[in-house]
């Protein structure tokens, strides 16, 4: 890992030096243990800020569209910058999606792909600690050694605190890149896909309703899930539109339902299961159970995969004459 980090820094320094890119988007250490922050490196002198480790959890694709927006109020000529970015499998798929949706230009992007063995979910570590905070942590290949704010130490198997998405991830290498560094990741885990969704589907309607009432009552409408998601780039989200006003702005449960149904639905055929929304939620709501339901349906009904290549059409911007109609009362 250390070595990949070193290679990454060297490559980025080269790219900045020879003018291939103007800015590089990567991860840097944040001040709290097991946390990173996106960083924007503009000069070869700064490349040492870049880190590559098991806590590069956030999806950097989210940070790209803003760089290609013309600065507000700027007069005269403006050329969008040339942007470099480091991408895990999921980041790269989000980038593919954003390129297809014309939010970022392929020809001004330099993607460095790094194979990924899965990222740590900070919430899971927090849960392992219980009610105390995380004072310090060390990560090696197999485990996370944590010290709680109560001074107690604990060794946690890394597999137990991997993000849920990472445990099932089938695309651990960038699907689109200009350069790949590091080793090929070990082969994707043999897991039953959508097991969580299938299990949930087997519950009674009342149980399912009550589950979501419980989960969504926790929601504080902070929109961190939306803001962290690369797909949620709308200038004005339906949740905040006033004409028409789709829903109220409070945490009235009915409105929270409409928000979450709408948000999840807008991910149909677009969600790459990167887990950024889940990691961002300050209330630890399992949004994945909602996202994955749609992903499962998209895969099963339309035999579509999300954002694996630039050529494939997105599931909801295409159709087949013989698409499933079994859901219809009178087809």
């Amino acid at each position: 890992m250390k070595q990949v980090e070193e290679t990454l820094r060297q490559e980025v320094a080269k790219l900045l030096e020879d003018g291939t890119i103007d800015v590089f988007v990567g991860h840097e250490a944040a001040s709290l243990p097991l946390k990173t922050s996106p960083c924007f490196v503009r000069s070869p002198k700064e490349v040492d800020r870049l880190v590559w480790n098991r806590i590069c959890t956030s999806n950097l694709a989210t940070y790209l569209p803003q760089l290609f927006k013309r600065p507000v109020g700027l007069k005269g000529e403006w050329t969008p910058p040339k942007v470099g970015v480091v991408a895990k499998g999921c980041d790269s798929r989000s980038i593919v999606g954003l390129i297809k949706e014309k939010q970022i230009p392929r020809d001004r992007l330099f993607i460095i792909g790094i194979g990924c063995e899965g990222m740590i979910d900070r919430h899971s570590v927090g849960r392992a600690l219980g009610v105390v905070g995380l004072a310090d942590a060390k990560v090696d290949d197999k485990s996370v050694q944590v010290i709680g704010t109560d001074g107690r130490e604990k060794r946690i198997d890394i597999a137990d605190v991997l993000a849920a998405s990472c445990r099932e991830c089938q695309h651990r290498e960038a699907v689109l890149s200009n350069l790949t560094i590091g080793e090929t990741p070990s082969s994707a885990p043999e897991v039953s896909h959508y097991a969580n969704v299938a299990e949930f589907e087997s519950k009674s309607p009342q149980e399912r309703w009550e589950h979501w009432v419980g989960e969504l009552s926790r929601c504080i409408r902070c929109y961190a899930c939306r803001q962290a998601c690369p797909n949620c780039y709308c200038e004005e989200c339906f949740a905040e539109e006033t004409a028409p006003k789709w829903l109220g702005v409070t945490t009235d449960l009915s409105d929270v339902f409409v928000f979450h149904l709408g948000r999840a639905f807008h991910q149909a055929g677009r969600c790459v299961d990167c887990g950024a929304c889940v990691a961002a939620c300050p209330q630890g709501i399992d949004l994945r159970l909602l996202n994955q339901k749609i992903n499962k349906d998209v895969e099963e009904l339309f035999e579509a995969q999300v954002s694996l290549s630039l050529e494939e059409a997105e599931a909801l911007s295409s159709f087949r004459m013989e698409d499933d109609q079994s859901f219809m009362t009178e087809p």
Binding site: W209, A268, L290, D297, D324, M328
Partner: peptide
């Protein structure tokens, strides 16, 4: 049709009775 298939399924998933939402040609 694709959108409706997904929506119908999603509503049922969160516990809304499927008997409430219908599609036809």
């Amino acid at each position: 049709r694709r959108k409706f298939a997904l929506l119908k399924s999603l509503l049922e998933y969160v516990g809304i009775e499927p008997q409430r939402v219908h599609f036809s040609w």
